[in-house]
């Protein structure tokens, strides 16, 4: 039989619609502007571990075709809107990540992304808590630094230890035999040994500066300068990732170039750098914090679902 039916029960889709209506109210009450940015763009997010889908724009009647990328998140054009003076903005959109399929991943998924002017990451963590609590009724999250979690769960001081110590722990706890760089070992240990134990809402902040992505590096959150980045975990599942946003255009360009080099090291095709974002930052991005939240996973938590297919009408295998 052809599996034409939705993988999610209709009751789950109704709950999903209610949650999305609640999200709309949440931002309307706070006077945050809903925006739309392109799904197809000339540049792609530089993250070396993301694989964007590529598509061809072919002018009807002939002419030069153009490669466009389906966005993996709307952060670059949303920041251009902020630089253009939009004020606080939010967006709920479908984003696309090639190759990602599993119990918590579908190659296209719904992302809620919002930016708050004048907020730092700590203030935004409070607002993320409010939004998540409005859906799950789970209260305020625990706040803990990335390094403190490694000390708590693995008994290791990540500021002081050698790469070899992380490798030893990775081999011991995850039976992983390959080679990784320092961030690779940290990621392995975090995702295998720490994340599954973060059952109560936990806001992890002060990430290593090497994992800053688009966050600024700050002093004061930890013993050493750290990325002003946070992630929310509930029931052992990563739900949101936020930054006190980097506004320094020159630093942004350096990170793009470093991402390009990493892509090369990992043997991945180079992607065009988003010069428009760099220009927008040169013009001036207002001080702000931003966060992206996985809406499908939020619905999973609300419904106590163990597989993303239970909250999406037609996942990859039925698309």
């Amino acid at each position: 039989m052809i599996d034409w039916q939705p993988s999610a029960p209709l009751a789950n889709l109704r709950r999903r619609a209610q949650i999305i209506a609640g999200i709309r109210r949440f931002f309307a009450e706070r006077d945050v502007l809903e925006v739309d940015t392109p799904t197809l763009s000339a540049a792609a997010v530089s993250d070396p571990h993301l694989f964007p889908f590529a598509a061809e724009y072919v002018p009807e009647g002939g002419g030069q075709a153009q490669t466009l990328y389906l966005h993996t998140s709307p952060e670059y054009p949303m920041k251009r809107l902020l630089a253009a003076g939009s004020g606080c903005i939010w967006q709920l959109c479908r984003v696309y990540r090639n190759g990602e399929s599993g119990s918590r991943h579908n190659p296209e998924f719904s992302m809620l992304e919002w930016y708050r002017l004048g907020f730092d990451h700590h203030q935004l963590m409070d607002e993320v808590d409010e939004l998540v609590d409005s859906v799950l009724g789970c209260g305020r999250s625990r706040r803990v630094t990335y390094a403190a979690l490694f000390a708590e769960h693995l008994g290791v001081d990540i500021h002081g230890c050698e790469d070899a110590e992380l490798a030893r722990l990775g081999r011991e706890h995850c039976d992983f035999r390959g080679e990784l760089d320092r961030d690779g070992w940290l990621n392995l240990l975090f995702s295998h040994c720490i994340e599954p134990r973060l059952l109560q809402p936990t806001m992890v902040f002060a990430f290593p500066a090497s994992q800053a992505a688009l966050a600024r590096v700050v002093e004061g959150d930890d013993r050493v300068p750290s990325a002003a980045r946070f992630e929310l975990f509930i029931q052992g599942m990563e739900l949101a990732n936020g930054y006190f946003e980097l506004t320094d255009a020159a630093e942004q360009l350096r990170r793009f170039e470093s991402d390009q080099q990493s892509r090369e090291v990992f043997g991945r095709a180079a992607l065009p750098i988003d010069r428009r974002l760099v220009s927008a930052l040169q013009q001036g991005l207002p001080e702000c914090a931003g966060v992206a939240l996985g809406v499908d996973r939020l619905v999973m938590l609300a419904l106590n679902a163990s597989h993303i297919d239970e909250v999406i009408a037609f996942p990859l295998q039925r698309a």
Partner: peptide
């Protein structure tokens, strides 16, 4: 076979 991938970072299979 469980696919484990953080939003930022290396993907693994457990």
């Amino acid at each position: 076979n469980e696919y484990v991938k953080p939003g930022k970072g290396q993907a693994f299979n457990r």
